[in-house]
Nucleic acid binder design. Structure first.
Lengths: 105, 105
DNA sequence: CATGATTTTGGTTATATTACCAAATAGCCA
DNA sequence: TGGCTATTTGGTAATATAACCAAAATCATG
């Protein structure tokens, strides 16, 4: 593999990693519905605020979401809506796995 | 977040994690072109055979690829072609990031 | 300015991931 | 069978992730 390809795959994997966590998938799906502040997300997720804040940082850093401060609140929005298209494929994989499991019953 | 949602997001993230590594992205892209045996992939990747084998296991376990043994070789194929659609979105994110970087020069 | 609310940052610990080496396994063929 | 090739599995060490708590930073408001 060429060095330039390695860099490309590293950059790509950084973005995919930014989605590869249950909490971050939830955030992506939730922000797909509209903007949310950290406290709203924290309430829904049920983790420490600092934990949620760090998840948001990872996603923002990857370029998936963006934020805007209004008052004391930080509002996050989904910048790259296309990541929502991941879900349909992922669910296809899950369905296929489930169907295959059934064959062995 | 409900318990059942948590399980769903965990299952989804397991699949996305199976793609969230440079080597595994390479494998996905390569298998998108056709079946490959472990030794072919190992040659292209330039890592230990056991390392590549473990990457393949993770992807197979996630339901993304499947394999078939012929002789002493194990041939892997991309089972869920839809994962290739991830790339287009990921590249959009990368392009947008690159474009934004340029603004600050 | 002091207070309270929201968010981020720093620090620590626990867990997960990854790479490599060595050894085991499986299949082919002389 | 014995040896050769391809692949997987087990073990270990290094690194990366992730959770929580505490503390700092930011902003509105009395």
């Amino acid at each position: 593999m060429k060095k330039e390809d390695t860099r490309r795959f590293e950059a790509q994997s950084q973005i995919i990693k930014a989605l590869a966590h249950p909490t971050r998938l939830f955030i992506a799906e939730e922000l797909g519905k509209g903007e949310r502040c950290v406290c709203e997300l924290t309430g829904m997720i049920g983790a420490d605020t600092s934990t949620v804040s760090k998840h948001l940082f990872i996603m923002k850093n990857a370029g998936i979401i963006e934020c805007e401060k209004r008052g004391t609140n930080m509002y996050y929005t989904l910048k790259m809506k296309c990541v929502l298209s991941f879900f349909s494929c992922v669910n296809q994989v899950l369905q296929k796995k489930a169907a295959e499991q059934l064959q062995f019953v």
